[in-house]
Simulated scan of single mutants.
Amino acid sequence: MRLRSLPGHEVRALRPPAAATRGALAALRRFVRARSARAEGEALADAARPLAVAFSGGADSTALLLAALRLWPGRAVHALHVHHGLQPAADDFAAHALARCDDWGLDCRVLHVRVRQARGDSVEEQARLARHAALHRAARELGCAWLLLGHHADDQAESLLLALLRGAGPAGLAAMPAAANRAGLWLGRPLLECAAPQLRAQLDAAGVPYVLDPMNEDPALRRGRIRRELLPVLDRLEPAWRRTLGRSASLCAQAAEQLSAQAGRDLRACRGEAGLRLADLAGWEPPRRAQVLRAWLAELGLRSNAEQLDNLLRQLDAPAQAPVLVGIGRARLWRDGEWLRCEAGGA
Rank of each mutant, 00 (worst) to 15 (best):
Ala322Val: 12
Gln117Ser: 15
Gly105Cys: 14
Leu251Ser: 08
Ala320Gly: 01
Leu276His: 02
Met215Glu: 12
Leu164Glu: 12
Asp60Phe: 00
Leu3Thr: 03
Glu229Leu: 15
Glu307Leu: 04
Pro170Phe: 04
Val208Ile: 03
Gln156His: 15
Arg228Pro: 01
Arg33Trp: 13
Leu302Phe: 00
Leu234Met: 13
Ala153Glu: 05
His78Gly: 01
Asp154Glu: 14
Ala290Trp: 07
Tyr210Asp: 00
Trp146Phe: 09
Pro209Arg: 00
Leu142His: 11
Ala34Gly: 11
Ser304Gln: 13
Trp241Val: 03
Arg22Pro: 02
Ala52Pro: 02
Pro7Cys: 07
Pro286Met: 02
Ala205Cys: 10
Leu111Trp: 07
Leu6Gln: 13
Ala295Glu: 12
Glu273Asn: 04
Gln126Trp: 07
Ala290Gln: 06
Ala290Gly: 01
Ala54Pro: 04
Leu129Tyr: 13
Ser248Asn: 12
Glu124Thr: 08
Arg114Phe: 05
Arg289Lys: 11
Ala43His: 02
Leu185Gln: 14
Gly23Pro: 00
Gly283Trp: 07
Glu124Pro: 02
His84Tyr: 08
Ala220Gly: 15
Pro287Met: 03
Ala79Asp: 04
Ala67Leu: 05
Cys144Asn: 04
Arg288Glu: 07
Leu98Ser: 06
Phe93Cys: 03
Arg227Ile: 15
Gly167Arg: 01
Gly143Pro: 08
Gly120Ala: 09
Gln291Ser: 13
Val326Cys: 07
Leu300Met: 14
Arg128Thr: 11
Met215Cys: 08
Ala43Pro: 01
Gln126Pro: 11
Ala261His: 09
Ala240Glu: 14
Leu300Thr: 02
Ala168Leu: 05
Ala68His: 08
Leu340Tyr: 01
Glu238Gly: 11
Leu245Arg: 07
Ile226Pro: 03
Ala19Val: 13
Leu66Trp: 05
Ala347Val: 10
Leu313Asn: 02
His151Val: 00
Ser122Phe: 12
Leu51His: 06
Leu161Pro: 00
Arg236Tyr: 06
Leu212Ser: 11
Pro287Asn: 10
Leu161His: 00
Gly246Asn: 12
Ala174Ile: 06
Glu141His: 02
Thr62Phe: 05
Leu230Arg: 01
Leu111Asp: 02
Trp241Gln: 05
Arg15Met: 13
Gly105Asn: 01
Leu86Arg: 05
Leu302Glu: 15
Leu164Trp: 06
Thr244Arg: 11
His81Thr: 13
Gly188Asp: 01
Ser5Lys: 15
Leu148Cys: 10
Ala37Tyr: 07
Ala269Ile: 02
Leu98Val: 08
Arg140Glu: 13
His96Ser: 04
Pro177Ile: 02
Leu297Met: 10
Cys252Val: 04
Arg294His: 11
Leu237Ile: 06
Arg227Phe: 05
Arg271Glu: 13
Leu66Gly: 03
Leu149Asp: 05
Gly172His: 08
Leu259Asp: 12
Ala306Thr: 11
Gln262Lys: 09
Glu158Ile: 14
Arg335Gln: 06
Ala13Val: 15
